Amino acid sequence: MSGHNHNGDHSGHDHSGHSHAPTVNESNRRRVGVAAVLTGLFVIVEVIGGMISGSLALIADAGHMVTDFAALAMAWGGFVIAQRPATRRLTFGYDRFSILVAFVNGLTLFLVAGWIVWEAFGRLADPGEILAGPMLWVAIAGLFVNLAVFQILRGADTHNLNVRGAMLHVLGDLLGSAAAILAALIIMATGWVAADPILSVLVALLILKSAWGLVKESAHILLEGAPEGIDTDAIANDLVASVEGLQSVEHVHAWCITPERPMLTLDAYVEDGVRLAPVNRAIKARLSNTFGIDHATVDVMRRD
């Protein structure tokens, strides 16, 4: 770095101990794959049941389950691709691909919710006949399938944004199945067919809330925002106070490849006569032990 005196010691650029290898959890990949298969098979059952019964709640839930299947399949593909090794052009590997998949999954949830609301208003304006009996049994079957899929995904790493995105899709299906069951019971008891589209809209609103959280968090990562809970000013102040010989910390930048892989770079200025290498090691140890940041590029130098 021009303008700085390193006194021949380049230890501030030491990257020993860092690995750019992907950290894909094999359990995540396997569980998401099983969930995708179960969801895809039940889509066929629910589409047929919705067409026979004439229920928007079932058709809406089937439409959501189609996107669930696509989301789970993309999540599975994201885990598979993320396992590929880093290259000269993609030096951090393909781990970020899973974040892109999570972002797309969130956007699809917005589209699904919008379609449900649009279709519901059409049904309210022109209600049709609904066979509550077949609707009820298909909705109950859907509830059990979604509970099984949700339980499978709960066993995965729920801190993984891709897994969370898949779980949000399945949670939307759980709500859709519950709404279809309630609507079927209301129709059977009172004959009020408007319960079907009204409950579908309520489910759509809940889906929108989940979708916003997923899109917001994945977009923050894609825009290289600082990881949650990491305050760069607090890190700089802590290092100066705790590392002997450290004068100041500047140009601190924090981001993450995935929520599990936080990254940080900083410039550290030391007092005259202080050896650079021990300060470098002390900073990295403090970052790892106190802030959970295991991958940091630390440039230790003296001012001119």
Results as ranks from 00 to 15, higher is better:
residue 16 S to V: 03
residue 24 V to E: 12
residue 28 N to C: 13
residue 28 N to A: 13
residue 32 V to W: 07
residue 37 V to Y: 05
residue 44 I to E: 10
residue 46 E to T: 03
residue 46 E to N: 05
residue 53 S to I: 10
residue 54 G to S: 08
residue 54 G to C: 08
residue 58 L to I: 06
residue 60 A to E: 04
residue 60 A to W: 03
residue 62 A to G: 02
residue 62 A to Y: 03
residue 63 G to W: 03
residue 67 T to F: 14
residue 73 A to P: 01
residue 75 A to Y: 11
residue 77 G to V: 04
residue 81 I to T: 09
residue 84 R to H: 13
residue 93 G to V: 05
residue 93 G to W: 10
residue 95 D to L: 11
residue 96 R to M: 06
residue 96 R to L: 08
residue 99 I to Q: 05
residue 100 L to A: 12
residue 103 F to Y: 13
residue 105 N to L: 07
residue 109 L to A: 09
residue 115 W to P: 01
residue 118 W to R: 13
residue 119 E to K: 07
residue 121 F to E: 06
residue 122 G to N: 10
residue 124 L to Y: 08
residue 126 D to E: 15
residue 126 D to G: 12
residue 130 I to F: 10
residue 131 L to S: 15
residue 134 P to L: 00
residue 134 P to D: 00
residue 135 M to F: 01
residue 138 V to M: 12
residue 141 A to N: 09
residue 142 G to F: 07
residue 151 Q to A: 14
residue 160 N to E: 15
residue 167 M to Y: 07
residue 171 L to S: 11
residue 172 G to M: 06
residue 172 G to N: 04
residue 179 A to W: 10
residue 183 A to G: 04
residue 187 I to F: 03
residue 192 W to P: 01
residue 195 A to V: 03
residue 196 D to G: 02
residue 196 D to S: 02
residue 199 L to F: 12
residue 201 V to R: 00
residue 211 A to L: 14
residue 215 V to S: 14
residue 221 I to H: 01
residue 234 A to I: 14
residue 234 A to G: 12
residue 245 G to H: 06
residue 246 L to S: 03
residue 253 H to M: 05
residue 255 W to M: 08
residue 256 C to R: 09
residue 256 C to H: 12
residue 266 L to P: 00
residue 278 P to T: 08
residue 282 A to R: 07
residue 285 A to F: 07
residue 288 S to R: 14
residue 289 N to I: 00
residue 296 A to I: 00
residue 299 D to C: 11
residue 304 D to A: 05
